[in-house]
């Protein structure tokens, strides 16, 4: 808890070779049964998200219904892993999903997306959000502190948030689009993991670029390093910008080749996405119906 900033060694990443590696993963050809299986898996890994100022209870109820039954005509399809909403909407989601729902409720807290509030306010927000019924908290790190080199502040804030979460799982959003370099991503990942994050997550979705395969690989490698050293698994959540099924499958290939089969599980890997679900559905039904469906066939969450 009182690790000093100098205790995080600088991590160096060669960006050109990261691109080479993810370029190879992008060439993975995922067809037939493997595609079917991974499409369903990807669907089950989605944190179906709405994070808009204009969100309404009606929209959140509809989102929950979609999370529970992504395509009502096909009850055999898996639910998504979670819905992801603002704290205000947690009670709406809880009442829509019920207490026994396999679909988790994730809420963004800590003054999402900028995180520019005093720490006590953020911790209070976290505690209240958990009390409202959130299973998972998606926090943002203090990028300002990180970029000015105050790594200890970043660590302390994550650790405090983790404590405030109580039983809820904590996802730590690095906002990699603001960290900019892969060196920073690698270091921030390690700080977040050391401070007790259950998941590390790329982005809020409010800043571009959001998730990329390159950034995700660097974060997966941080998770791998931690696991090999301690035996403790940490989850990964790329969020934002993952809209089509093919890209989602390549994310899964990257996870499989970097962390292995244990992480091919909604408990350890999530997609933060809204429109991805429909493209996955389209691909799944296409495989079964033999032709593509119009996007209109699926509800817009």
């Amino acid at each position: 808890m009182t690790t000093s900033p100098s205790s995080w060694p600088r991590v160096r990443v060669d960006a050109a070779t990261v691109a080479v590696r993810t370029g190879r993963v992008r060439k993975r050809s995922i067809k037939k049964d493997s595609k079917e299986r991974l499409l369903r898996l990807a669907l089950s890994m989605i944190d179906l998200t709405t994070l808009e100022g204009m969100d309404t209870p009606g929209k959140v109820r509809s989102l929950c219904s979609k999370a529970r039954h992504p395509h009502p005509e096909r009850p055999d399809l898996p639910s998504t892993a979670a819905v992801c909403v603002y704290p205000n909407m947690v009670p709406v989601a809880r009442s829509a999903l019920g207490s026994e729902s396999p679909v988790k409720i994730a809420a963004v807290a800590t003054s999402f997306p900028a995180g520019q509030s005093p720490l006590p306010l953020k911790l209070d927000e976290v505690r209240r959000t958990v009390e409202l019924g959130a299973d998972e908290i998606d926090m943002v790190i203090d990028r300002g502190a990180f970029l000015r080199g105050d790594h200890q502040a970043v660590y302390d804030e994550i650790a405090a948030t983790k404590e405030a979460c109580g039983p809820a799982r904590l996802k730590v959003i690095l906002e990699t689009g603001e960290l900019q370099t892969l060196d920073n991503v690698a270091l921030a990942s390690r700080i977040a993991i050391d401070a007790g994050g259950d998941f590390i997550k790329t982005s809020t979705g409010k800043i571009k670029p959001a998730a990329t395969l390159d950034v995700t690989l660097v974060m997966l490698e941080a998770i791998r390093e931690h696991y090999l050293r301690t035996g403790v698994m940490v989850g990964m959540k790329p969020a934002g910008g993952i809209r089509d099924a093919k890209l989602a499958l390549h994310y899964l290939a990257l996870v499989a080749e970097t962390l292995g089969s244990d992480w091919l599980d909604p408990h350890w890997f999530r997609f933060g996405a809204s429109s991805l679900a429909n493209d996955l559905l389209r691909q799944i039904l296409r495989r079964e119906d033999g032709h593509y469906q119009s996007p209109r066939r699926f509800s817009v969450d």
Binding site: A15, T17, V18, A19, G23, L182, D214
Partner: peptide
């Protein structure tokens, strides 16, 4: 000498 992140398509060995 590696220098940057972007590898244009079709330009590199691997």
């Amino acid at each position: 000498m590696s220098a940057g992140a972007e590898i244009p398509a079709g330009g590199s060995a691997y």
